[in-house]
Nucleic acid binder design. Structure first.
Lengths: 199, 199
DNA sequence: TTCTGATGGTTAGAAGCTATAACCATCGGA
DNA sequence: TCCGATGGTTATAGCTTCTAACCATCAGAA
C-alpha cells in the first residue's frame, strides 16, 4: 500500500513538481477518501522524506551497479545522466532547491557518502598525471569526508570535480537552461570529465 | 507598494523557501487584509515571476558591474558566489528546481544571454593555449546562442565550462551538500576555473 | 467462546491557502 | 458636477493539511 501511494506520488511530482503534490489527490487515486492515507504516512513531509530516501537509494544502486559492471568515471557519468533524465524531478529531489530548515534523514547522507566512495574508487584507478595543486594539498588535511579512503589526495580531488562538474552540466540541462542553445550537452559532459584526468 | 510587497516576499522566501510564500501573510505584514494585494499582483505566480525577473536583473547587474570594474573570469566567479551566498534562495529562484510547465518570461532569457555575453567576452580575453577539442569543433557549428559574438569557439567553450563548473560547485555548496565535508569550496571553485585556461 | 487490541477505514471539522465577487470610499480631470 | 480610475473592504467558494471521533474487521489470548 505504501508502495502504491508512493507510485502515485512520483507520478504527480513528475508532471507538476513537489509543490503540487497533494495527499488528497493521491487518496482519491488509490480509492481512499482523505485522511485514510495518514495511516500510511504521518504527514506530507513524511511522504516526501520517504520519496527522497528512495531517490537516494535509487541513484546509489545505479552508480554501484554501473561500477560493478566495469564502468570508469565516464561510464558512471553516463549512468547518472541517464538516471537523471529518466525522471528529472527525482534528481531535483536530491540536488534541487533546498528547503530552509529541512534536514534530510541521516541515512540519506550515509547513502550519499557510499556513492562518493564508489566515485573515489573509480577516480583512484585513473592515471595520476596532473601537477599537484594547492587544493590537493588542502585535501591532504581535509579528507575525513572520504571515510578514511586510502586514495591519494589527487584522486579525492578528481572525485569532487567529477561530482561538481557533472552536477553543473546536468542540473542546468535538466532545468532547461540550455533550451535554445543547440549544442549537445552530452559532448560537454564528456569533455568536462575527460579534462579531469589530464588536469 | 509593489516594492514593499516584494520586500516582504523576499524575506519569507529567505526563511522558508518559495513553497511557503503566502500572499495572505504578506498582506497582513503590509497592513492590508487579504485580497487587496491582488490589486498589485494578479496572482501568486505573477508575484513570483516578478521576483524571478528581479533576481535575473540583480545577477546581471552584479556580473556587469564586476566586469566593468575589470574582473576576469575568476573575479566574476567571486562576484557571483558572493551574490549567491548573500541570498541563496534568490540564486535557486533562477537555478534551482524547475517547475514543470512553468516558463520564465522572455525578457529573463534575454537578461540571461546578456550575462552570457559578458562571460564570453571575459573568457575571450584569456590566453588560448589548450588543444582544440571535439566540442570546440561542435561549437563552431552551434554558436547561434552566443548571439553572433565573434569570439573563437574555444572561448565559447570556456564560457560554457565556466558557467557549468561555477554552478556545479556553488549550487552544491548552497544546498548544503558539502556539509560535514570540511574542505573550502572557494578553493575548489578557484581551481576549477583556473583549470579552464590551462585545459 | 468471548474479549481485546491492532489495523484500516469512514465522516466532520478546524485552520489555512488562493482567488473571485460584490461593494464602497476617495480623488483627478472633463 | 459627474465619472472613471484607484485602492481598499467583507463574504465566499473551493482547495489544502491534518486532527478528532467513530466504526468495522480480524487475530489471538483468557
Amino acid at each position: 500500500m505504501r508502495a502504491e501511494i508512493k507510485r502515485h506520488a512520483w507520478e504527480q511530482i513528475a508532471v507538476a513538481g513537489v509543490p503540487a503534490l497533494s495527499l488528497n489527490a493521491i487518496a482519491k487515486q488509490v480509492g481512499m477518501s482523505g485522511p485514510a492515507l495518514y495511516r500510511y504516512f504521518g504527514s506530507r513531509d513524511e511522504l516526501i522524506t520517504a520519496l527522497i530516501r528512495d531517490a537516494y537509494r535509487s541513484i546509489a544502486d545505479t552508480v554501484r551497479s554501473a561500477r560493478s559492471a566495469g564502468a570508469g568515471p565516464a561510464g558512471l557519468a553516463h549512468a547518472v545522466r541517464d538516471w537523471a533524465r529518466s525522471d528529472p524531478q527525482r534528481y531535483f529531489l536530491i540536488y534541487g532547491t533546498p528547503v530552509p530548515g529541512y534536514h534530510a534523514p541521516d541515512d540519506t547522507t550515509a547513502i550519499s557518502s557510499e556513492v562518493m566512495a564508489v566515485l573515489i574508487e573509480a577516480c583512484a584507478q585513473e592515471a595520476d598525471d596532473g601537477p599537484r595543486t594547492p587544493f590537493d594539498a588542502h585535501l591532504e588535511t581535509h579528507r575525513e569526508w572520504a571515510g578514511g579512503h586510502p586514495a591519494p589526495a589527487a584522486a579525492l580531488h578528481r572525485a569532487l570535480s567529477f561530482w561538481t562538474r557533472l552536477h553543473g552540466v546536468l542540473s542546468l540541462e535538466l532545468a532547461g537552461h540550455f533550451a535554445g542553445m543547440e549544442f549537445d550537452p552530452d559532448l560537454l559532459i564528456t569533455e568536462e570529465l575527460a579534462a579531469l584526468t589530464s588536469r
